[in-house]
Amino acid sequence: MSIEPYEPWVGSSYGKGINGTRVMLVADSHYVTEGEKRHKKSSHTTDIVKWWVLKQKNGKSNKHPPETPLFFRRLTEVVQSGLDFQATEPEIWDRLAFYNFIPEPMGTATSIPSRRQFKAGRDVFRKALDSITPEPNVILVCSMRCWDWMEAEELKVLETHPKRRWAYRIGESVAGPMHHPSYWNRSGMANPAKSWSNVLQELASFSKAPAP
């Protein structure tokens, strides 16, 4: 049985970009209960963003909105600083595309995907990317372990990257990696948000540079 990607979240103002840059954030995986595992919803990613970030339920404002998880707050901080865009969380995510690389639900936040699941993520990623129009200028992959499975053309070393990783070309997009937000407290970095904001800023500058 073939595996299909989750539908990416694409904000209603994504096409406008953020200060001239269209951004796609790629994270790791969804984790769900055992019961939910048997019923994968293609809209799970979009449902998650609507619930946790936009505070919407069934298309309406949630009267008792939950607190935004640290994961989303940290990514918002990276975008705000990296693209110099001071706006509310919902306004920022309305201009982003977001996708989870592993196309199958995991059991817990600490579950480690298998090689088969990473391969499945790699195999369907381009299908998910091609569904986003216009294509992103920048793809920021918020998971080092997923980044290692990406198929892309090496572009140049990211001067701002703490690990000296390469920027890649994926189609017409420029892509680069950062640590998953859940890893920041263990990274030993003095200011992870600032470091990853610098990487996003550098990727954005690459995307606007003329082709050699």
Rank of each mutant, 00 (worst) to 15 (best):
L83V: 07
Y31L: 10
R73A: 14
N58D: 10
Q56R: 03
L70M: 14
S43A: 14
P66T: 07
R73L: 14
P90K: 03
L54S: 06
Q86M: 13
V32P: 03
V79T: 04
L75S: 07
G20Y: 01
I3A: 12
G82M: 03
W51Y: 11
K37T: 14
E89T: 14
G20W: 00
F72A: 06
H30A: 07
D28R: 10
N58S: 12
H44T: 12
G20R: 01
P8G: 07
P8L: 02
W52A: 09
P5R: 04
K37L: 15
G11H: 02
T33F: 07
S42I: 12
P5L: 01
R73M: 13
N19Y: 01
T46N: 11
Q56D: 02
P90V: 14
K40T: 11
T68A: 09
E4S: 09
D28E: 09
E36A: 15
A87R: 00
I48D: 01
Y6W: 06
H39G: 14
P5N: 06
N19A: 10
S61I: 13
V23P: 02
V79W: 01
G20S: 04
L54H: 06
Y31D: 06
S12K: 08
K57C: 10
N19L: 11
R22H: 08
P65L: 02
R74C: 15
T68R: 02
V49N: 00
W9M: 07
S81T: 08
N62P: 04
D28V: 11
K40M: 10
I18N: 00
K55A: 09
V23I: 07
F72D: 01
E36G: 10
V78A: 05
Q80V: 15
V49M: 03
L54V: 12
Q86L: 14
V49S: 02
P65S: 02
S43I: 13
V79I: 10
L75D: 04
L75Y: 07
T68V: 12
T33Q: 01
S29Q: 09
K41V: 15
Q86V: 15
F72S: 02
G17S: 03
K57D: 04
G35C: 05
A27H: 05
H44W: 09
T46G: 11
V53T: 01
P65F: 04
R22G: 08
V49R: 00
G20D: 00
V26S: 02
W51M: 10
D28F: 07
M24N: 03
S2E: 12
N19D: 03
A87G: 05
G15D: 05
A27Y: 05
Q56M: 10
F85W: 04
V79G: 03
R38L: 15
T45M: 02
K37P: 13
T88W: 03
R38G: 15
K50A: 13
A27T: 08
Y6R: 02
K55Y: 10
K55F: 12
E67H: 07
T76L: 13
R74Q: 13
R74I: 15
I3N: 15
K50M: 14
T68Q: 04
Q56P: 06
L70P: 15
Q86E: 09
H30P: 00
G15T: 05
W51Q: 02
P90A: 10
K60A: 12
L83M: 05
K50V: 15
K55C: 09
